[in-house]
């Protein structure tokens, strides 16, 4: 029984990291209908920023996790830069396909650029301890502080984000643009600014996800982004891409499945299982768990 509960907790912890990343995918997909393959690499950017700014944070007398503030800023800038330099020109001229290929190219570019920068290089880097070590026990189940903090912070961020999109003017503008760009323009919404804002928020979430990930696995490497990103993307599709609560649900489903596969079957099969679920869900309910089937306009 205690193994079971422990597995559930690990699943929730993994799931909350996936959910944070999936939110970034789903927000961008919702607004410009593009799978932002580079989103995974924003996590990598955030991770390295944290590693390089932790000494600075410690020197200022702040806790190590304060480095995430710098990471959030850097990631938001990288996200906005990607949109302005690469995605917008292609979106204006090209088809959906060329935008998708640009996204893949952007992802490759970030990954390989990181490897080519001498300070980063292809070898993994080890991160410092992010949160206080230790934990507490309830019965025979151990709750690590890191796990608790990860789950709580993710939950808070998700609620805040949901409130933002539902209640504020900017959030309403975002939903408006994702529904109909032309109508949004007519209502006086600056579509380009809204898209850039979406990229900034999504990338900032990737930075937080990087912190959560490093608190658990203090090792970071340049292809980390694609590994995490693909699973997070699967989460977004599972929940119904473009739907914010769907991404959260999908993240937890993928996290739980992964943790159960790892502890009850085999850790080397967890990737295959994740994709198997994706294929099954897409066959049974192509729009995702929370998605609605929308008829196609002619």
């Amino acid at each position: 029984m205690s193994t079971f509960i422990q597995t559930v907790i690990v699943g929730l912890r993994l799931g909350s990291v996936y959910a944070l990343i999936a939110l970034g995918y789903t927000m961008v997909y919702g607004i410009i209908r593009l799978i932002n393959f580079a989103h995974g690499d924003f996590i990598m950017v955030g991770g390295y920023t944290i590693i390089f700014t932790v000494p600075l944070a410690l020197a200022l007398g702040l806790p190590a996790w304060a480095a995430v503030l710098a990471a959030i800023a850097v990631c938001a800038l990288v996200g906005m830069g990607t949109e302005i330099i690469a995605y917008r020109p292609v979106r204006k001229k090209g088809t959906n396909m060329s935008a998708l290929i640009t996204a893949i190219a952007m992802s490759l570019f970030l990954e390989n650029l990181a490897q080519a920068i001498p300070a980063i290089g292809p070898n993994p880097k080890v991160a410092d301890q992010m949160f206080t070590a230790g934990g507490f026990r309830i019965g025979s189940v151990t709750f690590e502080y890191t796990t608790v903090i990860t789950i709580v912070i993710s939950a808070v961020i998700m609620v805040v984000l949901y409130m933002f999109t539902q209640k504020t003017r900017l959030g309403r503008a975002m939903r408006c643009v994702s529904e109909d760009k032309a109508a949004a323009t007519l209502m006086g919404i600056n579509v380009n600014h809204t898209i850039i804002l979406t990229f900034a928020i999504g990338s900032a979430l990737a930075a937080v996800a990087a912190l959560m990930y490093m608190a658990q696995y203090p090792r970071i490497y340049t292809t980390l982004g694609s590994d995490l990103g693909i699973k997070a993307f699967v989460s977004a599709v599972l929940g119904g891409i473009g739907i914010i609560p769907g991404a959260v649900l999908g993240g937890f489903v993928v996290g739980l499945f992964e943790s159960f596969t790892t502890s009850y079957i085999s850790s080397s099969l967890s990737d295959a299982v994740v994709f198997l679920i994706l294929i099954v869900v897409l066959l049974l309910k192509p729009a995702g768990i929370m998605g609605k089937n929308v008829g196609e306009k002619v």
């Binding site: 290929i101 190219a105 490759l108 570019f109 990954e111 080519a116």
Partner: peptide
């Protein structure tokens, strides 16, 4: 020289440039 050690970096740039200027 360091950039050329990572040929995929070069190809990523080529891909983006081709898609933007000659889709």
């Amino acid at each position: 020289n360091g950039v050329f050690k990572y040929p995929m970096l070069v190809y990523a740039v080529v891909l983006i440039v081709v898609i933007i200027f000659r889709p």
